[in-house]
Design a protein around this nucleic acid. Structure first.
Lengths: 174, 174
DNA sequence: TACAGTTGATTCAAATTTCAACAACACACC
DNA sequence: GGTGTGTTGTTGAAATTTGAATCAACTGTA
């Protein structure tokens, strides 16, 4: 793409698997490939949702979480931790969705400090539309390109990583 | 973590493999796990670099690219495409690094329109420090938790995905 | 040379994100 | 009941990101 000199195999961001070369460090190459492909993938998903449904990927995920939550509502803090967002970012994001009528806010019954975000009917409708679009793209860009055995490995690895990351977040539990 | 009620298995973003429930769609679960773990991971890496080296993950990657580039310099456009950033974002980012003396800019010799970003000695020094920090964390959070066979699968899958994503970017080549 | 069409990068305004206070409430304890 | 302490969310200012112009330099063509 950029230069044609052969020594560029060293260039870490190069996507291609390095052909004629000692196996090098497979895990590190894997990390790199993972990191790069992820950036491309998220960029793609983001653009599609924006042009096709006027939603950021984050908006989509927020609506997804609310859709799946029993009662269609979640506390701000739950949203924050599920989305790995700062509290103020969630506040802002919910506000913008509220302006568009896709979400409502209400005080939390059990806790006077709390706020809940509730998905509206309009929100559900838009989510349904966006969901079709998004799911199709995930299928094309990801699922169609991964076989069953690979998917099992991915599931195993990333579940493990996810759990570990959550756990060593609050190790001083007891 | 948040609630204790059992019905929360439905919550899609829940990291854990859903225990008492039909195997569901492994590939789709894999996608979800991948997506979630990635968010957690990036958040962690970002925080560490920021507190430990006053660098955003994006700053780090930019310096990494320049470090690896022959001559320590890259065109703005190359940076943009490698980092999957918009042109204006690259402009801004390079400017901030320039203010800190980590990078310099200069006109591109071959093309009067072009600009190059060049890493400075200070940039290399800071990168070296940050790199140690970052590499250690990648090791702990990712590499240590993936075995050799899994790494091979990850490398294969994400290389494939990355190539595919790059390719169907410019399909109208000929 | 002059012209139209491209490309590479920057600018500006608007949207988003962060971070550091801040307010309101819950809880424990006296 | 009152008092500290920790939680839950919001606010406001500054930093960052986006997207639509804009500018300048290259290209090809006559």
């Amino acid at each position: 793409m950029t230069s044609s000199s052969a020594e560029n195999d060293t260039t870490a961001w190069s996507r291609a698997a390095v052909p004629g070369r000692p196996p090098a460090d497979v895990p590190r190459q894997a990390w790199r490939a993972y990191f790069e492909a992820t950036a491309l993938l998220q960029d793609r998903l983001e653009r599609t949702l924006r042009s096709g449904a006027e939603l950021h990927l984050a908006d989509y995920n927020l609506l997804l979480l609310l859709t799946e939550a029993p009662g269609g509502h979640l506390r701000m803090g739950e949203l924050a931790s599920l989305m790995v967002f700062s509290p103020s970012r969630v506040t802002y994001q919910v506000k913008t969705l509220e302006k568009r009528g896709l979400v409502e806010r209400r005080a939390c019954p059990e806790d006077g400090r709390g706020q809940e975000a509730v998905i509206t009917d309009a929100g559900r409708r838009l989510f349904r539309r966006a969901s079709a679009l998004h799911a199709r793209q995930v299928q094309e860009l990801f699922l169609d390109r991964v076989d069953e055995a690979e998917a099992e490995t991915l599931l195993r690895v990333f579940s493990r990583l996810g759990c570990a990351l959550e756990d060593d977040e609050q190790p001083p539990a007891g």
